[in-house]
Design a protein around this nucleic acid. Structure first.
Length: 594
RNA sequence: GGCCCCGUGGUGUAGGGGUUAACACGUCGGCCUGUCACGCCGAAGAUCGUCGGUUCAAAUCCGAUCGGGGUCGCCA
């Protein structure tokens, strides 16, 4: 090993260190060779510092420095000196000083890097993922990992101070009905039987409550075998928590304090004392989303009641079928071209809207393809309802409530981006509460739990379980940040009879319920305390804190959209022996054989 | 499963039927004692993701396929 032992961090050197002798270790970020004088920007996790190799000071070190290249790994000894005023580099944190090298050791050479270890590079994600170890050398990516670490440390610190226990739950567990597709793991010693990787530690943490652990948390890896997105990976991390003897307010209050602590400790950001609460119904009505971005207005406004007697066929037929007509006011957009509006239409059609009606108040005239179908009075009523001023563009969707909400909700977000209505520095937290417990799945002709089957119904709505299950509100709460769902939770069912009732409602037969959840129904009969909890998507949270557009940037080794790891080349095939041991025979479609 | 975008030296891009496949960065060699995206001189490096088709001629047009990304469905 090297005889030179590191004594300082490159990025930490300042004018105060002038005169010190230091030993630095790191990577060659850049080399500038002037002949008898060579500058090397040496990089470690802390940052960069300029190292000088000088003919006069150490001809020997200079000679070695001539051979070094980008990304070589060095240890150098040298003296920190101040730069003359003209040579100060104000763009560098260490720009007031430099290190004059007296001794150098090359710890390792490096092949020509595939791409530069600098920020702001535009390299195909393909290439970045294949050489992830190089991508993670970039300061930007290092900062992502560092923040992630700080956040999880702050979480642990806070939860420990509030008497939570960090308890690990199994990764090898059992496939359960409902929810996402499971990742399966065959069991060698139980031929034909499979473990499932957990989609969340939900049931285990509830069992821990029955066990009297009272307060649990875990920074838990979760697995879901579904299609990926910018904010969805097949394995992801949740801060998972559960508490006994709490109600919704207790949970909300604790989470607010947790977030305040975490954002202050890791980002130095002070959050409001409490977060606003919006009901699910309100969120859907006003923003067309159960995770509304509240950083801007542009609320959805209904005009259905104004169109009850309209002669406009499209509107009247939608109303007859029980649909809705809603609109938003895109302020100042009356000048939008046909092409602009077409592109908005593309947004709404993605969500199933068959059309996008519009009215532009240009100031001189009212431009609209539906003007000829509407009476003067209707036009004026619409104008007043949406508070349309000269220069405004009104946009309408008429369809089922689901399509109207999805289409206009998405249009609202799209317009906010186009109109630059969003302050990128804002951190807008809000709670969404009073979700329905169930929705009806017409394809399967049964009720489906919106949150999950263990969510407790609102106590006021208990009788409705028998008469009108769709009207039952859940004791659930989602926390949203800037229009993205950070996490959610609920007060859980802790009584066996109520849990059985919910199983019945979602169409589980008594036999299935017994087979899959018998232990749970039993456990609830042995003194289960009332309990509730929450789970947060850690990846999404870090993504938002770092202003990234994909959680891949805050996960050290993420998967591609086709759920593969380009660096490891996983998943891979296994040899026949392994399959035989597991009693598994492949049955691949013809195209994939051989 | 559907729709959309992308694939050209190591990296980022240009080129849209006939080009010596262009440019920047990087790389290699030479020169250089105050640079910090160092500079100057010179050089190497690409059968244009893959397969097939159209054509006298394909990086370019068509089809398929593979890979990456976005999104709807799916997923909480």
């Amino acid at each position: 090993m090297s005889e030179l032992k590191r004594t300082a961090q490159c990025g930490s050197l300042r004018a105060a260190n002038i005169g010190e002798e230091v030993v630095l270790s790191g990577w060659v970020n850049r080399r500038r060779d002037h002949g008898g004088l060579i500058f090397v920007d040496l990089r470690d996790r802390s940052g960069l510092v300029q190292v000088v190799f000088n003919q006069e000071l150490s001809a020997e070190a200079l000679k070695v420095a001539e051979s070094i290249r980008g990304e070589f790994v060095l240890t150098i000894r040298g003296q920190v000196i101040g730069r003359v005023p003209e040579a100060v580099n104000p763009r560098m944190a260490t720009g007031e000083v430099e290190v004059v090298c007296s001794e150098i050791e090359i710890l390792n050479t490096a092949r020509t890097p595939v791409f530069d270890s600098a920020d702001g590079i535009h390299v195909d994600e393909n290439v970045r993922l294949k050489h992830r170890y190089l991508d993670l050398r970039r300061p930007e990516m290092q900062q992502n990992m560092i923040l992630r670490h700080r956040v999880t440390m702050a979480m642990r610190q806070f939860l420990d101070s509030r008497d939570f226990l960090e308890i690990e739950t199994p990764m090898l567990t059992r496939s359960t009905p409902e929810g996402a597709r499971d990742y399966l793991v065959p069991s060698r010693v139980n031929p034909g039987h499979f473990f499932a990787l957990p989609q969340s530690p939900q049931i285990y943490k509830q069992m821990l409550m029955v066990s009297g652990m009272e307060r649990y948390f875990q920074i838990a890896r979760c697995f879901r075998d579904e299609d990926l997105r910018a904010d969805r990976q097949p394995e992801f991390t949740q801060l998972d928590m559960e508490m006994s003897f709490v109600d919704r307010e207790d949970v909300r209050r604790l989470i607010e304090e947790l977030m305040q602590h975490v954002f202050l400790e890791s980002l130095g950001r002070k959050l409001p004392d409490s977060f606003p609460i919006i009901t699910y119904q309100d969120a859907m009505d006003r923003y067309g989303s159960d995770r509304p971005d509240l950083r801007f207005g542009m609320e959805l406004v209904t005009i259905g009641d104004l169109m009850e007697n309209t002669g406009f066929q499209v509107f009247s037929s939608v109303l007859q079928k029980g649909g809705q007509i809603k609109g938003i006011n895109a302020r100042g957009c009356a000048g939008y071209s046909r092409r602009d509006i077409d592109s908005l239409m593309e947004v709404t059609s993605t969500y199933g809207a068959k059309g996008l009606a519009w009215i532009a108040f240009t100031g001189e005239e009212i431009k609209s393809p539906i003007r000829k179908f509407l009476s003067e009075e209707e036009m004026e009523a619409i104008r007043q309802r949406l508070d349309a001023q000269d220069g405004d563009l009104l946009l309408f969707v008429a369809d089922t409530p689901k399509v109207v909400a999805a289409a206009l909700g998405a249009l609202r977000i799209e317009l906010a981006h186009r109109l630059d209505l969003i302050d990128p520095d804002e951190l807008n937290f809000a709670w969404v509460v009073d979700f329905p417990l169930f929705e009806y799945d017409p394809a399967e002709k049964r009720y489906v739990a919106i949150h999950h089957m263990f969510t407790a119904p609102h106590p006021e709505d208990l009788e409705l379980l028998d008469s009108d299950p769709l009207q039952v509100r859940a004791q659930a709460y989602d926390l949203i940040l800037n229009g993205i769902e950070l996490g959610g939770g609920s007060i859980r069912i802790h009584r066996s009879d109520l849990q059985q009732k919910v199983f019945d409602l979602v169409g589980l037969t008594r036999e299935e319920a017994r087979e899959k959840f018998g232990f749970m129904l039993d456990a609830f009969q042995f003194g289960a305390p009332p309990h509730g909890g929450v789970a947060f998507g850690l990846d999404r949270m870090i993504m938002l804190m770092r202003n990234r557009e994909s959680i891949r940037d805050v996960i050290a080794f993420p998967k591609t959209q086709s759920a593969s790891d380009l660096m490891m080349d996983a998943p891979g095939t296994v040899d026949d022996r392994q399959l035989q041991e597991l009693f598994i025979r492949l049955n691949l479609p013809a195209a994939q054989k051989g």
